Simulated scan of single mutants.
Amino acid sequence: MSDPTPADLRPRRRTNALAVVAFILALLVSPFAALFGHIAAGQIHRSGGAERGAPLAWTAVGLGYLWLAGWIFAGALVYQAFTAPFPS
């Protein structure tokens, strides 16, 4: 067996758990994905390269805002449907 190379001796970077949770929330159509994605991205940035998962976190942020806009639009439609005057 050969001697270990410097790449073998480096500790493995772990994936930020909150980034994974945010991405799962984004797949479940939850606007909370944006909040958790922002928090995860900040944690990854502050880790100084010890954590990975920034693409997951930022994808969750984008989808979370998309779902938030969709929920607001759906709420506006429901509100309009229940407050519109009935035709006589």
Rank of each mutant, 00 (worst) to 15 (best):
R13W: 05
R13Q: 15
R13M: 09
R14Y: 11
N16H: 12
N16A: 15
A17I: 13
A17P: 00
A17G: 06
L18E: 13
L18V: 13
A19S: 10
V20A: 15
V20G: 00
V20I: 07
V21K: 08
A22Q: 09
A22Y: 07
F23S: 00
I24D: 12
I24V: 13
L25N: 06
L25C: 02
L25T: 02
L27A: 11
L28D: 14
L28T: 10
L28W: 03
V29H: 11
V29K: 15
S30D: 13
P31Y: 00
P31T: 01
P31Q: 09
F32H: 13
F32V: 14
F32C: 08
A33S: 09
A33W: 00
A33F: 01
A34V: 04
L35W: 02
L35Y: 02
L35A: 04
G37F: 01
H38D: 09
H38R: 03
I39A: 00
I39D: 00
A40I: 06
A40L: 06
A41Q: 04
A41H: 02
A41Y: 01
G42S: 02
Q43N: 01
Q43E: 03
Q43S: 05
I44E: 03
I44Y: 02
H45D: 07
H45Q: 07
R46W: 02
R46I: 04
R46H: 10
S47P: 03
S47Y: 04
G48I: 02
G49N: 12
G49W: 02
A50F: 02
E51H: 05
R52I: 14
R52T: 12
R52S: 06
R52E: 08
G53T: 11
A54V: 06
A54D: 04
A54G: 00
A54I: 05
L56S: 05
L56Q: 09
A57W: 02
A57L: 11
A60Q: 03
A60D: 03
V61S: 00
G62F: 10
G62I: 14
G62L: 15
G62W: 14
L63G: 03
L63H: 10
G64P: 03
Y65P: 00
L66I: 08
L66Y: 07
L66C: 12
L66Q: 05
W67S: 11
W67T: 15
W67Y: 13
W67V: 08
L68A: 13
L68R: 15
L68H: 14
L68Y: 14
A69H: 09
A69E: 09
A69Q: 11
A69G: 15
A69I: 07
G70W: 05
G70F: 09
I72R: 07
I72M: 13
F73S: 14
A74E: 14
A74R: 13
A74F: 02
G75C: 11
G75Q: 08
A76G: 06
L77A: 01
L77D: 15
V78H: 11
V78M: 12
V78G: 10
V78F: 04
Y79M: 01
Y79V: 13
Y79T: 12
Q80Y: 04
Q80F: 04
A81S: 10
A81V: 09
A81T: 08
A81C: 04
A81R: 15
F82H: 07
F82M: 09
A84P: 00
A84T: 05
A84M: 10
F86N: 15
F86Q: 15
F86V: 12
